[in-house]
Design a protein around this nucleic acid. Structure first.
Length: 662
DNA sequence: GGGAATCTCCCGC
DNA sequence: TTCCAGCGGGAGATTCCC
């Protein structure tokens, strides 16, 4: 959605609509790019996705503006200083150049699509994509001629190519063929690095020496061997390091290879006109930042403008950019890296149906637990990922006292995180576990370090056992991250923690396989909670459908999970009339009702404040409200900072990639 | 101030 | 008709506690 610098022609707005799939990919030469852009734009315009892309684009624009302002403020003395810093760093990096290794990057051609064609020859020669209407994983070369490519929604792909054949993904099949290719790779480098199912890096220096062959000859032999073993073609790139080998493998795709000699001049010539976007780790955002702030579009310019890179970016980012300019990349075989996290996520039609959302959580917890057990993993940081109906992504994490891997433990903690976000309309839920037990033997460790999480979850930092704390953890008071309130007053009626326990708590967790059970369980819980309120005012409830029940109990439920909804003073007579002032607001006016309730709450607080004895305790509601505001402020601040400060580029990308590619 | 936890962002396949 | 994934990695910023 980049309404970027080039979007001057308002009669052709699609020209500024840049997405991952409007960029050229191998096999897309000759595609009418403008036609594709126009179709993609027309089909996306007005959607929630489109609106979110616009929001994201605005943030990037702001980032660029911030960095431009910094750029403009640089004094002559500062520029001179940073140039010296850069020159020194370039010399240091140059000294690390190693031209003794020969790296080969092998990339299978349209892998998933090729495998599918292999198992169904009728697909041969026809435009085909692997995936579904929502998203396609890859497309064969026939489909790419229409502009269809990976990471494109299927419905757009079909518009571009009406005769497109869709084939569902079958990872078992791809893994099988991937294993076959890896057996071949192993012959050339037993320590090869598998980057994905269809990509690998091989250090073939030893193979070249032992066989008296050049890198190019080995590349040809390896590709032939892969074809013989699998019936699939691949492309290869040969270069002195992984970063360059990766770039090279894309040059003669499909079924070809490119050799970059182990010679400094050859490397520097190769890199000189190379667009920065070709480098792994430089994506859309980084490309825009470098181009629009400093005017860098080629790798060579990284060196020419090295002083500005050092002035505007963090040390590690600048280092990465300078390495790119010098054509340096990884030459050593890195140690085998242990897995850092494991996750599951699922997309579904956007909904705010809490029973549905909790059922999704049940499913995800079970999947995650199964996956963790398969790999003998136990972790202590659980992250809940949410994508709202408007495509906003949120994550909420908790670090636990003990390492966990059981379905029950995951669910118990995940549901607490989710509860704190309700009510919410979501289109995706994900669960990720990290901070694994290092010994990987599945035995829970007992980290005794006192942490904020311990405090939050256990109410103290003594490291008491979770089971001992079950009821407390399930208490909604911990949703407010406080330790003192074990009951909450609702108009003089105390709701005990057990009355409001987590519907997915381990005691009585419904079967993950039976969504009806979950729904029934959830409904029971609603009714239980509701019962407490019934004591207050029978007149409010007319005992009708579950939907009405849910609507009516929403108020109370929300109190239990969100500190923003402390509207105890507000009751809706006949489900639409405020008991306090008589204003009529139907249940569908959720936000308006909330605002109205907040108004009464504020009114009440004001009254309490003026009436209260200065020495008496602060009213509970105020504590809650304050907690909430604090939390809100924190989120707002983060939001602002993460988008407002263009100085620090996410280095991770670079060094994640540098780890992979160097 | 340091360390841990949390959250967001970026990237690639 | 359908209407933008799932997974993994990690840096940087911020907040909080000690």
């Amino acid at each position: 959605m980049a309404k970027s610098e080039s979007s001057g022609d308002t009669s052709r707005p699609w020209q500024s609509y840049h997405t991952a799939y409007t960029n050229a990919k191998a096999g897309m030469e000759g595609v009418d790019k403008e036609k594709v852009q126009k179709i993609v734009y027309e089909m996306s315009k007005g959607s929630k996705y489109f609106e979110n892309e616009e929001r994201k684009e605005a943030f990037i624009k702001q980032k660029i503006e911030n960095m431009r302002a910094q750029f403009a403020k640089l004094t002559a003395a500062e520029i001179s200083h940073y140039q010296k810093v850069a020159d020194k760093r370039i010399l240091e990096l140059e000294a690390t150049r190693d031209l003794t290794r020969i790296w080969l990057h092998v990339d299978m051609d349209a892998f998933y699509a090729a495998v599918e064609t292999l198992s169904n020859p009728l697909l041969k020669g026809k435009p085909m994509a692997v995936g579904g209407m929502s998203m396609i994983s890859t497309a064969n070369y026939e489909a790419r001629r229409f502009g269809v490519r990976a990471a494109m929604p299927g419905f757009i792909a079909r518009r571009l190519c009406p005769e497109l054949i869709f084939v569902p993904t079958d990872f078992k099949k791809y893994t099988y063929y991937s294993d076959l290719t890896r057996k071949v790779f192993q012959k050339y480098d037993p320590n090869f690095i598998a980057a994905s199912l269809d990509e690998a890096y091989l250090d073939i220096t030893t193979a070249c020496l032992e066989r008296g062959m050049t890198g190019g000859e080995i590349g040809e032999e390896l590709r032939k061997s892969v074809y013989e073993e699998t019936g699939l073609t691949c492309s290869a790139g040969l270069a002195p390091n992984r970063l360059l080998a990766k770039v090279c493998s894309d040059i003669n795709k499909p079924n070809g290879q490119f050799v970059l000699p182990n010679d400094r001049t050859a490397v520097m010539t190769f890199i000189s006109s190379l667009p920065i976007r070709k480098i792994g780790g430089i994506g859309k955002v980084t490309e825009h930042l470098l181009r629009d702030v400093i005017g860098i579009t080629t790798c060579e310019e990284m060196l020419q403008k090295s002083g500005f890179l050092c002035a505007l970016f963090s040390r590690s980012s600048a280092d990465f950019f300078l390495c790119v300019g010098l054509g340096l990349g990884g030459t050593n075989t890195p140690q085998v890296k242990l897995r850092k996290s494991i996750s599951n996520e699922r997309t579904f039609p956007a909904t705010d149906d809490e029973a549905f959302l909790f059922q999704k959580l049940v499913d995800l917890a079970e999947m995650l637990s199964t996956d963790m057990k398969k790999e003998s993993l136990c972790g202590r940081t659980l992250t809940l990922k949410l994508k709202t109906a408007s495509f906003e992504v949120r994550t909420r994490a908790v670090t636990l006292q003990n390492y966990i891997c059981s379905n029950e433990d995951i669910l118990k903690n995940a549901s607490k995180l989710l509860k704190a976000e309700l009510p919410i309309s979501l289109r995706l839920i994900g669960l990720r576990m990290s901070q694994f037990n290092e010994d990987k033997d599945g035995n829970p460790s007992d980290p005794t370090q006192k942490t904020l999480s311990n405090f939050i979850i256990f109410g103290d930092a003594t490291g008491r056992n979770m089971d001992d704390q079950t009821s407390f953890c399930s208490d909604f008071s911990d949703d407010h991250f406080t330790t003192e309130r074990r009951t909450v007053s609702v108009d003089n009626h105390e709701i005990h923690q057990n009355d409001l326990r987590d519907p997915l708590e381990s005691n009585g967790i419904p079967s993950a396989n039976n969504s009806n059970d979950v729904l029934r369980y959830y409904e029971n819980e609603l009714e239980k909670n509701h019962g407490s309120l019934d004591n207050k005012s029978e007149a409010e409830f007319d005992g009708s459908s579950l939907d009405n029940l849910k609507k009516r109990t929403n108020l109370l439920d929300s109190e239990a999970v969100s500190s923003s909804n402390q509207n105890e003073q507000c009751f809706w007579v006949d489900d639409y009339k405020c008991l306090l002032c008589g204003v009529e607001l139907p249940p569908t006016f959720v936000e308006e009702r909330q605002e109205h309730a907040d108004f009464h709450l504020a009114e009440k607080l004001q009254k309490e404040e003026s009436d209260s004895n200065p020495r008496s305790p602060i009213p509970k509601q105020r504590i809650i409200q304050k907690d909430h505001m604090k939390s809100q402020t924190r989120h707002k601040k983060k939001h602002k900072s993460s988008h407002g400060d263009g100085k620090h580029l996410p280095i991770d990308t670079f060094f994640v990639k540098s780890n992979q590619n160097f």
